[in-house]
Design a protein around this nucleic acid. Sequence first.
DNA 1: ACCAATGGTTCAAATAATGAACCAAATAAC
DNA 2: GTTATTTGGTTCATTATTTGAACCATTGGT
Lengths: 274, 274
Amino acid sequence: MKKPATQAQREAGKKMGTVTKALSLLTFFTQTRPEIGLSDLTRLSRMNKATVYRLLTELQAAGFVEQAGADRAYRLGPEVLRLAALREAAVPILTVSRGVLDRLGAATGETTHVSLAKDDMLNTIAHAYSPLHATRVAMEDAEVISFHGTASGMAVLAFATPEFTDAVLSGPLPAHTADTLTDPEAIRAVLDTVRAEGIAESVGGFEADVHSHAAPIFGPDSRPLGALAVAAPVSRMTPALRALIRSELRRAALELTRDIGGTCPPSYPGQAAA
Amino acid sequence: MKKPATQAQREAGKKMGTVTKALSLLTFFTQTRPEIGLSDLTRLSRMNKATVYRLLTELQAAGFVEQAGADRAYRLGPEVLRLAALREAAVPILTVSRGVLDRLGAATGETTHVSLAKDDMLNTIAHAYSPLHATRVAMEDAEVISFHGTASGMAVLAFATPEFTDAVLSGPLPAHTADTLTDPEAIRAVLDTVRAEGIAESVGGFEADVHSHAAPIFGPDSRPLGALAVAAPVSRMTPALRALIRSELRRAALELTRDIGGTCPPSYPGQAAA
DNA sequence: ACCAATGGTTCAAATAATGAACCAAATAAC
DNA sequence: GTTATTTGGTTCATTATTTGAACCATTGGT
């Protein structure tokens, strides 16, 4: 009787309320697709056009989306800025992150970034470049990256609940590059190492020529919220730089966790000593 | 038939869609009330507790709110940061504003801020201090200010549609200080001046001892989105500083409007000459 | 002039939202 | 230390909202 409706619904296999449907529309906006027309959004969401239109109208009235002048395509609205500012006032992740990123970037001379876990992906919310080198790993905020193919993702997975890790590893694991790990068992083996060291490392797993280190950051409930990472060109990596990055990254991640009011779990390396 | 929304509508007893109801819950979070319990939100929203609970659950699933660890109070969630980063990628108001604010602050030596119009209020989304003086006007992001009592608000009202101006002026006009203008006709007279000069000025109208200047910033449709403002202590204001502020502010506001892809309306002073 | 898009609208049918009453647990009051 | 109140959370029959096929009016391409 009931058709498989929206994408999220089919993925989750559950029913979704009207509010969830409306909010799920917002997830179709990405960096590469910042504006979406009614028909496109209808196709993307697999919902009825009238439904999408009504939901968009409500989202628009609330300022979550607005219509770009030229065509009548929709894009995210100014209200999200207001809420983000408010969220920052309550939990200053962005503000704190920027300071930590700048210092970590200065100490290592490489590109740094913070990403937060959301569903089955990570979102980069802030980044910083070091002026030290002319060549650097380029980043964008709001970039979406996978769990299995990145150091940040592995750092989170290593300290996530087993159920979550299982869910991620049982899903599709696309290879971003020739060096991406795609075998669940191989990934689990790496996660054991990450758990032991507290830092994840990835050489060319997401982007070729990028050597990444990442450490998890934890929330008040000791669960990993996301990760702090340093991305360096493979060509520049040396044992000395690697040691520097690992030491600075470990320190910076602990600082970030602390400053946002989080606590590391007992299993995190170095906690017992504290 | 258009469908305006939010608090005003609920108070008026009209119908609002489920999505609007859910999103309206988010409006109860403020700087001074960053966390709200279920019962409190039920009272604030005047909705049924079960309804509020279900809406919150959906908002939580989408990451728009989360529950603080201690009590089970709700606060804004990390998803708003992601959306804000995306919005910034599409319309870089914050990024551009910060640059403009810094330069304007450096040029004038005073506190600068950008506020966006939302319903019947303005929201400060970014601010910058100048290190020049030890005494300065303090600001917070996400601060909410009124239209009628502030230079920023007057700057927007002066170039808003007559209907919008009428709506604001027919609403309650509380006096923030002894110097707040509360008479609609007096306000309209001031708006005429603002329209002629392109800059609004307020001495102690919102906070005593603060002398504010503000210029509107316009969107792609030539409608005012908000305002760029300079706030100086009354005690420091001199004719020379006033002239400096007005000239720098005018330049900075035009720059901001341009950089976010907006266009000034023909009625804006100085447009004909261009 | 046509065709195929687009954004937007309508209305009966089907579904999802609602709200009073109800828990259990935590505070507050006595 | 017992009682009364308030909290977050849950249930389920009633109700009102959402839904979706079909329908416009424009726009742009050929």
